[in-house]
Design a protein around this nucleic acid. Structure first.
Lengths: 344, 344
DNA sequence: TTGTAAGCGTTATCAG
DNA sequence: CTGATAACGCTTACAA
């Protein structure tokens, strides 16, 4: 019924080991034997059993990816980067969404370990350092994505949120804005803190005092993003002249909040987003945004993992710590157009 | 070094088979033996080797998912549905993106077959029916997602694009619109044809003749979606009074095109999108949209697959063909607000 | 260059 | 209830 290497060995009139060698494209097989084996395999529709191969000591050709939620634009781009890099090397990827729940995360670790994946990409670290320490102890290679290790020296690839926020604020400050409303997500989230630091650095460089009242935390709800900004803009005086939105989805809500307050963008208020979503160029007005190389973060993380997998055991591996830089993409939402002739 | 079932059997002072039984929570083990085994496993940090288990005949507890591009909002929601259903059953999911390339798709089939996954969810069918036929021949269960089988009776879960288009058009026709511009993607794409059918049915029911000039195909580029609609709206006479956008991303581009033509929405032109993206409520004006249960499509597809996996071999399985219905979500972009008191 | 045979870690069969 | 032992399909010394 099921075709095994034994069957094709028999058909090719060679031993199982010769068949194995031929199938694995190794050189120590006569041209003749190789061809017979390959022909037999083709004719009998042979398909290696990777479980058997893995059990016999080979790599499982599978990597795991533990992340928060592969369905957001941000995470799905990252996931795609990982998958593309994996596919290019003949690897496949098991995705585990945790939704930020520690118990689900631990279950993912357990399952991936039982599956004996060759390595891991990890974006979700909700249950502390112990699962990571365990991976280190077990010798399972992994690379952190969009996360840095506290305390341990680990491989990671992140993007610089601090620079992103710095770029955004500097852009606005250079345009003369002094009252910049900053919209963030959860206060405890590390990237959020990075952003705040970058923002403060930009302010300091322009000798603008930091006003905590201009920072609003919106949790993770788009609705909150709308209502808090709307409230802030109608209460805070002097009224902010610019809003830095947490991401482009929220920026869309911010544009609407301003519109509903009859504030014009960019004339009355400048708006800037983050992550350069595909919709940004088509919003009204087109949204300026800080673009992070998210796909590249995933791809590069996987590349580093594969480099590590291929690393000879006796050579010392030096942990890779990569931080990718964002780019500022200026569109109409942050720049007041030059007065046209007729208006002069 | 690596802990095997033999090690824990030794430690628990039982045979390997008893250890196996205890680990698999089977009843034919004495309470005493079970506890010793479980304790030993815990203490030694034991982790089953699923390759070994699979080789010995058990399920691999893995399913594969072959799809176009997990990074679009549409597909990532579907993927999440699949993953959630899988995780709930202790299964993990290998994702393979094909980007619509037949060779990559075939490679995915090959790899998934070698990995001996228990079943497949398939959304990308670019290389014809032969890989599917092969799965049938090999007895590998699979369910199609957002795809119907031509000719073969297969399990599938889809959403009704025809009904979606019908809902959208009927809504507009009821509001009195007679010149409705329909924006679609590639003409050859089956869902696109379904939509057209639904649209025509709605027109026929309202005795409105179908005008082919009002259908514009925009390929898969958002930029094209913008420019073609903009061109159409400035050329076609009498000017359409409504636009049915292919999806909400494109609808965003349509809103911009209309804005750039100084046409007001919904006063001059009504706009409707598809897929009810999270941004829809926050566009200006908030976008009416046809909502398809995409997450549910993924989840249900996986459920059917699992039901099939658990199906006794001797019972006849009757193929499941599920088509989920869309919902119309009406927002401001398609409805002219009632005149306010002051305007009377 | 080829073949024999010993694992890899589990589960299942079958006899106690 | 328990324990040998034979698979499962493949790779890899080791020997020829």
């Amino acid at each position: 019924m099921i075709v095994t290497i034994r069957d094709i060995a028999k058909r090719a009139a060679v031993s199982v080991s010769t068949a194995s060698r031929a199938l694995n494209k190794r050189s120590d097989v006569s041209r003749d034997a190789r061809q017979r084996v390959l022909a037999a395999a083709r004719e009998m529709n042979y398909s290696v059993n990777l479980h058997a191969r893995a059990l016999a000591g080979a790599a499982s050709k599978t990597i795991g990816f533990i992340l928060y939620d592969s369905s957001s634009a941000f995470h799905s781009a990252m996931t795609r980067g990982v998958e593309d890099a994996a596919a290019a090397r003949g690897y496949s990827m098991i995705v585990c969404n945790t939704g930020g729940a520690p118990d689900i995360e631990l279950r993912a670790h357990k399952m991936l370990r039982e599956k004996r994946v060759d390595g891991l990409l990890i974006n979700s670290v909700q249950s502390g350092a112990s699962p990571l320490q365990r991976l280190v102890d077990d010798g399972v290679p992994f690379v952190l994505l969009n996360r840095r290790a506290d305390g341990m020296t680990l491989d990671y690839v992140t993007v610089s949120y601090q620079k992103g926020a710095y770029l955004a604020a500097t852009h606005l400050l250079a345009l003369g804005h002094r009252r910049i409303l900053v919209q963030l997500a959860q206060e405890a989230h590390p990237p959020v803190q990075d952003r705040l630091r970058g923002h403060q650095r930009a302010l300091a460089e322009h000798n603008v005092p930091f006003d905590p009242a201009l920072v609003i935390y919106c949790g993770d709800q788009q609705e909150t993003a709308y209502s808090r900004v709307r409230a802030a803009m109608s209460v805070i005086r002097p009224t902010p002249t610019a809003v830095l939105a947490y991401n482009d989805l929220w920026a869309t809500a911010v544009l609407k909040a301003l519109h509903d307050l009859a504030l014009r963008v960019p004339d009355d208020v400048a708006v800037l987003g983050h992550n350069d979503n595909v919709i940004a160029p088509y919003l009204i007005p087109p949204l300026s945004s800080v673009s992070y190389p998210v796909y590249e973060m995933g791809r590069l993380g996987a590349e580093i993992l594969f480099r590590k997998l291929a690393w000879p055991d006796d050579q010392p591996w030096s942990p890779q710590a990569v931080t990718l830089d964002p780019t500022l993409i200026v569109r109409a939402s942050s720049v007041v157009p030059a007065p046209i002739a007729a208006a002069q």
